[in-house]
Write a protein that binds this DNA or RNA. Structure first.
Lengths: 148, 148
DNA sequence: CGCTTATTGCTAATGATTCTCAGTAGCATT
DNA sequence: AATGCTACTGAGAATCATTAGCAATAAGCG
């Protein structure tokens, strides 16, 4: 279904659904985590789908425009992407020690933001919330390692 | 005062307060907006403070560790920094059309985040919230430009 | 004042992302 | 099925922010 949606999206813009774009889309849909363009490229190569890195870079923004994925973060140098949650959206808690990503959603948070935007006469389109810190395991480890 | 704090921070790490670091710190404190390393470098050069771009890049992370500035965003390729709000912290609304940045703070938002983190057993250190959309003027302009 | 060693400026290197360009392939029409 | 018009692709060069390497300086301590 996402493939059809993407095809329609492309057609509406006079673009074409090619084998490469199909392969990239399929791989993206298979993923549920965050991935970098390089990640995706390596995986595709490993699976035998001959798609160049340039095409991966060219296709990701298209998938984003089509609403199928969104840019998730810019950790270090890499840009990471993730599958769009279809309808809703979620925010992230990122563990600074082990890299764990916790995805969460809070209707209350959304409502609060809407209220804040209204107060500032700001028309909200999207948002990104990243909470940095330590996951449970790492917080415990840190406590054990540096008790002083 | 911030200069003293930075000096103490450096001393505690066996680092030295140099003329260059002093100049960079002074310029950073003079700024109230978001700035890129390049921005800062150009301004310093214009003011006659001979500080190399490499030193700017080397000093910004130190100022961040000292809590004087924080990395604000990654628009395009540039990394932008801003002065830390001293005590509190604020979030951002970014206008996609004119680039306006609205800074805001909401105690309720902070409380809500604390609650969400507790629920996920996550130890929060910091967070970044960027709301993307249109500022009042641009929203009005957009409505006028594309009324259909 | 004289050391020790952190720091600086310059410049080359790095590395993710983008561009270029010649060859290839959708797809609508004939 | 063949043709024409373009979008698309792969490979490698080009960009450009950020880093690393190195010789020359200059903090900060005794």
């Amino acid at each position: 279904m996402a493939a059809d949606a993407f095809g329609a999206f492309l057609a509406a813009r006079g673009l074409r659904m090619t084998r490469e774009r199909g392969a990239i889309l399929a791989e993206v849909l298979r993923r549920s985590d965050h991935f970098s363009p390089e990640d995706l490229y390596e995986t595709l190569k490993r699976r035998g789908a001959a798609v160049s890195l340039a095409s991966v870079y060219r296709t990701l923004p298209l998938l984003a425009d089509a609403g199928i994925i969104t840019a998730a973060e810019r950790a270090g140098k890499l840009t990471r992407w993730e599958r769009a949650a279809g309808r809703g959206h979620h925010d992230h808690m990122l563990c600074a020690r082990c890299g764990l990503t916790i995805e969460f959603h809070s209707a209350e948070l959304e409502r609060l933001q809407a209220r804040l935007c209204r107060a500032h006469r700001f028309t909200r389109l999207s948002h990104t919330l990243h909470i940095h810190g330590f996951c449970r395991a790492c917080a415990r480890a840190a406590r054990g390692a540096a008790p002083a």
